[in-house]
Amino acid sequence: MKGPQDYLTETDGAVEAHIRARLSEAFPEDGFLGEETGGAPRDQVWVVDPIDGTANFARAIPHFCISIAFVAGGEVQLGGIVNPALDETYLARLGEGATRNGRPIHVSETTDITATSFEMGWSNRRPLASYVAAQSELFEAGSNVRRGASGALGLAYVADGRSDGYAELHMNPWDCLAGLLLVREAGGVTGPFLSADGLAQGGSVLAATPAVADILSRATTIPLLAGRDLLPESQSRAQSLRIA
């Protein structure tokens, strides 16, 4: 145990070591930021969660995944999420759409709140009362709310139309960057993350199909992203270019 409800297995370390070694061989100039071995944000950095959903994995529940994102120029350029138990691979590239096992995916077309199924992740980094209040508001609005204990897969399922929205009051970058790119490339909307210093500090996460995103945003008090989600310094560079 790394902390309350925070599991670690030998496999987490082994998977991260393997991924880190392979990325270092292929892209020796790039940085690396992993859940288990750490690292530091850089202009070009691979952000890796070797097992998201470790509590499920430790109990032989086949709902866990490997999440890998590549951040460059202040934006998430690539995202990959793999559930080896179901042999499902989600991939996205900025501006080029999202796929599952090579086939294009799209967020759901749900518009009626009483037909929605949202997922909310729980984090002990935020007050329990906030989590309960958000869930209560969603239940009262008529939504179904569940928790699968893998935030990365929760985001992938929004991109794939299996869920209408995902929210968590605090996530680390390795848990969510790949999934946020998947959702946006699959036609969904998200909250800000990189522009809120998420790469260094983590932060709140929201992703949803557009028609019901406002309801999820109000319940969780997580704002929706107005434009492209850039790192703060990249926003400054972009603003300077527009002024020039």
Rank of each mutant, 00 (worst) to 15 (best):
S163V: 10
S195L: 03
R162L: 14
S240K: 10
G3I: 04
V107L: 03
Q201L: 07
A208C: 14
D43H: 13
R59I: 08
V82P: 00
I61D: 08
A178S: 12
A98Y: 07
A219K: 02
R218G: 11
T11F: 05
S136T: 10
T220E: 00
A72N: 13
G148P: 01
S163L: 15
S163I: 08
A72D: 12
L94W: 09
N124T: 01
D175M: 05
L182P: 03
P232N: 08
M120K: 03
A207F: 14
A196T: 01
Q135K: 09
A200D: 09
T9G: 04
D112E: 15
H18G: 08
G95R: 08
D43E: 14
V45F: 09
F27V: 10
L230Y: 13
A21D: 15
P127H: 04
G161R: 07
C65Y: 01
P84Q: 08
D112P: 04
F32G: 08
D160K: 08
D164V: 09
T110F: 06
P223H: 04
G102V: 12
L231E: 14
S143G: 07
A98H: 05
G151Y: 02
I68Q: 02
Y166T: 07
A226V: 11
S123A: 05
S150G: 13
F139K: 03
C65R: 02
L225I: 01
V15K: 13
L230H: 14
T190I: 12
G148C: 08
A207W: 14
Q77W: 15
G97M: 11
P4F: 10
